[in-house]
Amino acid sequence: MGPLVIYEVISENINLLTAFIIGTAFGWVLESSGFSSSRKLAGVFYGYDMVVLKVFFTAAVTGMLGLLFMSLFGWIDLSLVYVNPTFLTSAIAGGVVMGAGFIMGGFCPGTSFSAAAIGKIDAMVFIVGLFIGIGLFGAGYSIWQELYLAADMGHLKISDSLGMSDGLFALLLILAASAIFYFAEMVERKFASHRL
């Protein structure tokens, strides 16, 4: 039964070792999907390369479905996994600041490391920026603490907040993702001339 480290099937040290192995797979998939290229990543915002939407939503659906089925089979206790807490104000405000950083820098943090790993100097500079940004947040923590802690809704699931079962929400998300993929393929054909 998972999570393995919580059920003490594996020790804390083995958990750190698997973290490294899982991270290696993570980095491999990001790089081999083309996420090490800022121009491919930014393509989604101009329609010439929709790889971000395709990979991201396929991953989200796969992750969600896999965990739901594993829970159904009794392989993982989902009440013990970490569900990110929802602080409404900072979730929106943080997302807005990150979105601006995304269109400006062309990376998100994970992809910038996979790009820096293959020698992209722009990604290394982006990472320097990440450290500065995190440091600034930490240094001025008391200034934005109120915003950061506002509108605490706890570890709320989206299915509960919409008053539906996890399964029904999953089905709706799959339908939405299918529509997004259809749209992505259509847009890519339209803007094919801009392709890298």
Binding site: S90, G101, P109, G110, G133, I134, F137
Partner: peptide, 29 residues
């Protein structure tokens, strides 16, 4: 972009991986 993303990731309690992808997989609102 890095400065903004770094700052925003702290305000939003995680970035595209930790908040969006991992969060969506466990249906976090």
């Amino acid at each position: 972009g890095g400065i903004l993303f770094g700052f925003g990731s702290q305000l939003g309690r995680g970035c595209t991986s930790g908040a969006a992808l991992s969060g969506m997989s466990v249906l976090s609102l």
